[in-house]
Structure formats: structure tokens, C-alpha cells
Amino acid sequence: MEYEEAKKLIVEQLTKKLKTKSKFYFNDLSKILEMKPREAKKIVNKLVEEKVLEYWSSGSTSMYGMPGTGKQAAAEHEEKE
């Protein structure tokens, strides 16, 4: 899958799920991309680099989300809702 196509797919799918959740495990992303984890990682890394996705971490677990989405971002004054 080309990068642009993958980017569109991720944004589309994550936006669709925004009503119920704003943070996603890496596994969720590789399932959306229908790729093996190592292949998916290359694309996900690039999406983070381009700020299409951002990391969220509890300290023990990491998740991915789109910048500015979710309660956490608002609570942290990263972006007002």
C-alpha cells in the first residue's frame, strides 16, 4: 500500500471511531492497514513524523491518536475543544 493511501485510510477510520474512542493501540492501526506489524510500523512512524498521529503514553503502555482529539488534549490545554 502506498503511503498516501495508507494515510487516508488511517485518518478515515480513526475519524469514524472518534465518537467512541480517541486513543488507539498499535495493533488497531496495523489491523486497519491490514499489514504485518513491522511493515505497518514504517507507515505509522511516518504518520507521527508528519504529525498526522501523535503518541499518548501512560508510562507503561503507548497508544496513538490524532492531535487535538480526546478529552486528554483539552484537559492538558494542548487544544481547546
Binding site: 507521527v48 513524523e49 501523535e54 503518541y55 499518548w56 503514553s57 501512560s58 508510562g59 503507548s62 491518536g65 486528554q72 488534549a73 492538558e76 494542548e78
Partner: peptide, 12 residues
């Protein structure tokens, strides 16, 4: 619980 801070390019 947790947050979205980090340095650029690092997820940990």
C-alpha cells in the same frame, strides 16, 4: 493517567 507529551520523534 498519562499524557501526550514527548520529544519530537520519540514515543518513549
Amino acid at each position: 493517567h498519562g499524557g501526550i507529551v514527548g520529544v519530537f520523534g520519540y514515543g518513549g
